[in-house]
Amino acid sequence: MKLTIKYFGLLAELTQCNEEEIEFSGANVSDLKDVLFQKYEALKIKDFQVAQNNELTTNKTTVTATEIALLPPFAGG
């Protein structure tokens, strides 16, 4: 299925886009991460959370939504 991936904070800089569409045939969030790591190797060493339907997921969560967000922690204050 086609997924829209949204990137926040420094992840948007790393991927050079705020959002993009990708083709995904895997099952869970862990599979999705593998797809993204293949596309962006630098993502591997970044900390981020994956949200679908505006809800945070774990690696085992099944990907059901078409809109996914990748959210890094922010240090600044």
Binding site: L10, I45, D47, Q49, L56, P73, F74, A75, G76, G77
Partner: peptide
């Protein structure tokens, strides 16, 4: 529960390293 473990030191820059729009904070 949001971010279980601290990121590697230096992997996420802070305002003094990368800048910040003044009104944002």
């Amino acid at each position: 529960c949001l971010f279980p473990t601290p990121p590697e030191k230096g992997s996420v820059p802070n305002c003094s390293e990368i800048g910040v729009l003044g009104v944002l904070p």
